[in-house]
Amino acid sequence: MSRSLPKKDFGGRRAAVLAGIRRAAGAPAVVLGASFTGFGALVHQTGLSVWHALFSTATGWAQPGQVALFELYGLGASILVIGAAVTLTSVRLLPMAVTLMPLVRAPGTPRWLYYLAANWVAVTTWAFAMRDCPRMPAAQRLPYFLGFGCALWGVSLAATALGFALAGAVPLPVTLGLVFINPIYFMLMTAADVRGRARILAAVLGAAAGPALYLLTPDWSLLLAGVGAGSLGFLLGGGFRRRV
């Protein structure tokens, strides 16, 4: 499982892209592959087609948001509610992009390339890039990130199709297991990186509010729980007093 950290200098941009791809072909690919297999299986359960699942992974590669979208769509929620929920779920990508970009910036890189690269900013790619990139020459960091991100993106697309195909072909208990991957994975991801009193409180309150509000208003419950429990956790957990 533990892979040796990459060398500081790959010798060139092309080699850096390949190094990024190699880095992805291990634990990150397996974990993300499992998660997107679950996503594919989940889309199968909503009655939509494999093309919808693939289109989602291709255009809006950000897991909890994708699952929220299909869950809400399945409930018949309006496009406004779905858009707002996905927007709020994806806010976490902003600080990631803000902190990653200065790290991968290099002279002579066209500006549009950063905006393209931003498409692959996600929890996994961000965490690996933040750890690996400082060890490399500036010119090799963005190529490395692109190689890493695109490899995981490709794995995600294949896994989405695989999960969709499996959900219709394997015995029901296995399908149930596949659909169960996403909630379990998100729960562990949250448990893994939630830090600070305010965020922990927000997550605990959200977990309690989610099912309770769902009984009152299925399609609005996610938004209400997110904004309500998140704000309450922020206030009670001392978010206002936070200075860094």
Partner: peptide, 27 residues
């Protein structure tokens, strides 16, 4: 950002809890 992070965590936790406690579909 801290406020936004709290909302994002609460929303994902709400989604996870709902998918486990009150799932839709065959689950």
């Amino acid at each position: 950002f801290e406020w936004a992070a709290c909302i994002a965590y609460a929303l994902v936790a709400a989604l996870v809890a709902r998918m486990i406690v009150l799932p839709t579909g065959p689950l």
